[in-house]
């Protein structure tokens, strides 16, 4: 398979890219990050760089007026990815989540440095880049005791899953969800309705 590399981040294509939508190939990103950690593989790092750097730059440009500072965020974030890749644990979450954490932390420390003139780099204490044991116990017990229900939720299409999880597990209101996902309220409502119909059907089947 030949993949062409151009400057545009959208052009990172994988063998399995079926439709041209915005979905992220998590397995691939995770694999690259693992190669960076275990093999110190520069090729894998270059792939990650081309995927993330332009996005990080654009995100940080909205937080810093100054272009040099948004470059600094890219530079810092990506070198942390290179030097801390071994702290990433694919069993605990997606590569995107981990790299987001690294980027958010770099941004936080830089903003604090600009504002308070402090270089104490508190972010890794506030949001550890190495994930501690998240206690799984009883977190959702109150809301969803039924493991089966959770499993069924996982089978929903991504768009509906997001809404169901937000609404039932994270107790966000429909308005908050609309805001958070940047979707019209009507879309949230209809996704929720569709998802519930599907869940009902599924659970009915399983309970026969």
């Amino acid at each position: 398979m030949v993949t062409t590399q151009t400057q545009l981040p959208t052009s990172i294509s994988h063998d399995k890219s079926t439709h041209m939508n915005e979905s992220i190939d998590h397995a691939q990103l995770s694999e690259w990050l693992k190669q960076v950690a275990e093999l110190r593989c520069k090729v894998a790092f270059t792939h990650l760089f081309h995927f993330f750097a332009p996005k990080i730059q654009r995100i940080s440009r909205s937080k810093f007026p100054n272009e040099a500072q948004s470059h600094e965020v890219v530079q810092e974030t990506m070198s942390n990815v290179w030097r801390k890749a071994h702290l990433f644990d694919p069993d605990k979450g997606a590569a995107t989540t981990w790299i987001y954490t690294v980027m958010r932390n770099v941004t936080f420390d830089l903003l604090r440095k600009i504002k308070s003139n402090r270089e104490d780099n508190l972010s890794d204490d506030i949001w550890p880049v190495i994930e501690g044991e998240v206690s799984q116990d009883e977190a959702y017990e109150d809301h969803l005791e039924n493991k089966q229900l959770l499993d069924v939720i996982e089978t929903l299409p991504e768009a509906q899953k997001e809404v169901v999880k937000g609404f039932y597990l994270m107790e966000m209101s429909q308005e908050q969800l609309a805001n958070h996902l940047n979707l019209p309220l009507g879309t949230i409502k209809s996704r929720l309705r569709l998802a519930l119909a599907k869940l009902k059907g599924q659970l009915g089947e399983n309970n026969d």
Partner: peptide, 14 residues
């Protein structure tokens, strides 16, 4: 929430 924000940060940008 972190997972979701991460997902949408690196996806919406595209």
């Amino acid at each position: 929430l972190t997972e979701q924000v991460a997902e949408s940060s690196f996806e919406a940008q595209t």
